[in-house]
Design a protein around this nucleic acid. Sequence first.
RNA 1: GCCGCUUUAGCUCAGUUGGUAGAGCAGCUGAUUUGUAAUCAGCCGGUCGCAAGUUCGAGUCUUGUGAGCGGCACCA
Length: 629
Amino acid sequence: MKVVFKGKAAEFEEANGFVVAKKFEPETYKKFVAFVQNGVQHDLSEKVEEGEIEFIDISSREGFEILNHSSSHLMAQAIKHLYPQAKFGFGPAIEEGFYYDVDFGDQVLTDKDFAEIEAEMKKLSKAAIPFKRKNLSKEEAFEMFKDNEYKVERISELDGNISCYEQGDFVDLCRGPHVPNTSYIKYFKLLSLAGAYWRGDSKNKQLTRIYGTSRASEEELKEYLELVERRKLNDHRRLGKELGLFMLSDYAQGMPFFLPNGQIVMNELINYWREIHARENYLEIMTPTMMSKELWETSGHWAHYQDSMYTTEIDEKEYAIKPMNCPGAILAYKSDLHSYKELPLRLAELGHVHRYEASGALNGLFRVRAFTQDDAHIFVRLDQVEDEVKRIMALFDEVYDVFGLSYKIVLSTRPEDHIGEENFWDLSEKALAKACESSGHEFSINEGDGAFYGPKLDFKLKDANGRTWQCGTIQLDVNLPHRFECSYIDEHGEKVEPVMLHRVVFGSIERFIGILIEHFGGNFPTWLAPVQVCLLPVNNEAHLEYAKEVEKELKELGIRVKIDDSNEKLGYRLRAASVKKVPFTLVLGDKEKENRGVTYRKLGSAEQIPVSLDEFKVLIKDIIKNKVR
RNA sequence: GCCGCUUUAGCUCAGUUGGUAGAGCAGCUGAUUUGUAAUCAGCCGGUCGCAAGUUCGAGUCUUGUGAGCGGCACCA
């Protein structure tokens, strides 16, 4: 086991951020005295005892980051050797590895160049070049990096002493820490290439970002690369194709087609959604897909959202296809007078919206141009906001729990381009934070990421690759009700403006289905499975009739059942059912026919369970009703 | 939109230095009538994303363009 020692003592930091014990046993670390520091042996036992130095397992998260950060430096050194004109931007460790942003000038790099860079890195690794920390004054730093405008820009933002790390002929501006020398970086791989704007601003030059990953052992690297491969198996785009769930067509870029199997999943989700929303006293409405320009001008979308809207002309009048359902819901609200006694008034809508998303942003079902929001607009009095938000969060918890999904909450605050008065924003942001706090939901804050009309709580779920996608959201909005002059009559007979909450649980049903496909790896719980039961007559001549009888009885219970009477051996048909991820496979032969039984197998299990048909009916009804996962 | 890559049969993929396309699976047909993860045989199936160009000749090379993938920006 390799252990990195992190120095806390100032003089130690100055010498080098890190030293590493070569053969470390945790129980005996106090006895451990010899360290490699810049290639020199030092006795640091005293510093260990005094707690000035802490040890870090290179396989720990912190060790991982140090290793990968050092790897990005090593890669930069190798690149500098091969491409002397290269200028470097930022090169940090990230979740699963590291990257470095490089300006190669006019040269175009492709992933075919990785082999050469990796070979050079290996060479440098073998040389065991020590990482040496140096502290520079600002002037010295400017002088040292004067040929690199990116580093110069960064240095100009720093105060006081500026540290850099030197390994052989390569120096980089860096806070550290690093592994002691390049030989610690042995098990790495360059993974991909991407354009990335300098400092994340699309107005700036695009640099070449090279992603890689570095591990403490060959085994860990292999494991990681296998994990990357395994993730592909759960990719919803692949499973969606294999299981006949959805498709995409060049004729409608970014607008998914739901195929029969996928439509079943969607319909089941919608049934469930309607059920719980009826219970929670939501009233369902449906509003038009296209509405005229004036409406969007009133709502502010025309001014703040036009780039994302599809428009058309009807009878010489401009229309927009709705990118959101809110204005429609507001018109529905305004169709009648409302008493304070009616509030909270919850108008739900499964709204199919269209948004012109950048072509490069599109991604399977996760990022599309046409999708269905399981929307609701809730009109409340100001004093009802906190309770209602808590109530919505409880509903979210209930729903996500059914699928076994976990989420992270992010509070997004006012963006630069927002409408309405600042004090409303102050109040709204506080109200959302308070609702989270008082209901025991943890959240982080994303400054400036709110909607133009109000702040929001976003519920983010992870896909198979660990990327997060916003699904549920709760948005607080005083602006749209004001712009549309919404009102209710309070207990004194006065007209008062209500507050509006926008909220979606699934978010986009399409995206949510994508998440579910990956979450379950295509093995949907029985209540969602396109085909729930597959019937396999052992012999078509002798058992098909009984299979049809079983089919009829199960169908009467509303179960989605299919007979596989193809002329294949049982083994083949079992495998076929398993490939199609059917939750229950029932084998029907002489034994079963004789005593009105079935022998069932659950997906993923080889266990054969004989029961009577009546018992099976009770069992599967129960599993479906309870949404057993 | 930007950077890089990919694009060949319904699906997954081969196609060597340019000489007008192959496999497995799926599908269809026949034989087999099967008791727990692939029975055998035959057949069908491709303007090689699209459009130009170079060439005697292009799936292979060049340019343009569509779509997809990985990122970046975006996600109001």
